[in-house]
Design a protein around this nucleic acid. Sequence first.
DNA 1: TCCACTAACACCTTTGAAACGC
DNA 2: AGCGTTTCAAAGGTGTTAGTGG
Length: 546
Amino acid sequence: MLQEKVSAVTEGCMSRVQADVEADLRTEEPRLGLSPAPTTASASEPDQNIENIKVVLHERDLWKKFHEAGTEMIITKAGRRMFPSYKVKVTGMNPNTKYILLIDIVPADEHRYKFCDNKWMVAGKAEPAMPGRLYVHPDSPATGAHWMRQLVSFQKLKLTNNHLDPFGHIILNSMHKYQPRLHIVKADENNAFGSKNTAYCTHVFHETAFISVTSYQNHKITQLKIENNPFAKGFRGSEEGDLRISRLQGKEYPAISKNMVRQRLISSHNHLAGKLGGGVLAGHPQVLSSYQYEPGVPLSNSDSQDPIPNLFPQSRDPSLLYHCFKHRDNARHLELGCKRPYLEPSSVVSEEHYFRSVPSYESPLLSHPYRTEAFTSREACMYGSMETESGSAARDSDDPTNSSSVNCNMWATVQSYPRYTVEGVPYQPFAAHFTGTAAVTPVVPHPASSIASRPQADLGIYNSATVQRGLPGIPPSSSSSSFSPAALGSRERADHPPMYHKRPGSPLRSHRDFSAYPTQGTISIRDPSYQYQVGLSSTGTHWTDS
DNA sequence: TCCACTAACACCTTTGAAACGC
DNA sequence: AGCGTTTCAAAGGTGTTAGTGG
């Protein structure tokens, strides 16, 4: 029933459906052990609820090309942009409401990969997840009108493999598969999120998944990048006298011109399509399931050397996963949601996968106050985030005294596959981080300076996050903390770089508060209810706008 | 020996300030 | 003086390649 309703939502019948679903959830709440939904529906914008927001991936065809070949993204110590860059077209926002748009990148599975025989293969268990960081769009917060006016580009987002990265780039492990996620957060009255009445929705485009590498493995990807990335134009060969020909001669792969590349790609696409249609994937259901998070299908491959015919199998088309919910500080207020998440191709209209569920635990993102006033410089902000350390915290969120304790650290950069342990792995106490060349003077002008070279202990960042079973919880110590870039004060913002780090006397929260704690959870990675419910509150969410 | 990784490199686009014209 | 366009150099984004280290 809920599936039908969600589908209806994508067809533009949101308001009525919402009311229905809300009613459904009210009736189901007792089964969840949730408090009765209070009459909180302030619904100031009944026709512009956040769940009405639709997001379309820009250059989806290009993304698909890469996806079919097995997208690789270079990660470097200094940080590397993604290509294709993540750009979206957003509709359905309330033109007058302020939103914050941000991206995080979560592990797509629990494997480490290697490229053998022109194929990606599982090479073992994944490394402990890196500190989860969020990339907040530099325009945030901005009105819906602003976001809808033009493409929203995250092209300045950078990826790094430097675990101590001081720039706020998103930290990834090489040879691992990742899935970017877009979050749209409704800014609260303070242009922040994480306080009361914060709503957000998450959009996941399967075709944006990628494997991080330090150098390209698949020549097809290299050619696609060269062909499509203007910055790589220098490596494009002319029809004749191809510069690359001379360079590439003697190498394993033949030199090819533009047209040859195109032809190759076309043929390879056909080949891939043929494989897909011919049941290649059927022989490797684990691959498909691991990518699409199919419930109940074994993900892990006991034989780590099993080849993966197609690392990025065609995701369902439409390919957008979507979940949307409303968080309320008062954890008792659950009015609507789905008891179980599901994946289902949505209507033709939306071309999206629509995912909607009852939050399973307090949203780290939303429960931790975040003020965007500090973004006056319009610089992108990167957030350290962490998984919760205790599954109990989520349940504790029912407690009003604890609801405010849920903080940004536990927000959605919760790993998709939270089985990793980070014990003994020092993580940078990454706080809110403004990237770019803001008007403020960087505390750490360049990587070689203080923070980058400073022992982490000096920063008070040693992390001993423990592995917990169950849903991530909330570190008790962080419960009373409230992170806010604005709290830095004007002097702080004016005199220091667009990044914050722990130091004595600093109003900033400790690393526990800001850094992502890739904690090891024991939730089954096959449990789709976890895959995309991160950040959802089991007790404090509902669908109504306020 | 293999492989992941790094840094330097050449080539290119992007960006923004200065110059210029109306 | 104000505005729009053009020019140009600096900054920064590419993949390549040789070298390093585990």
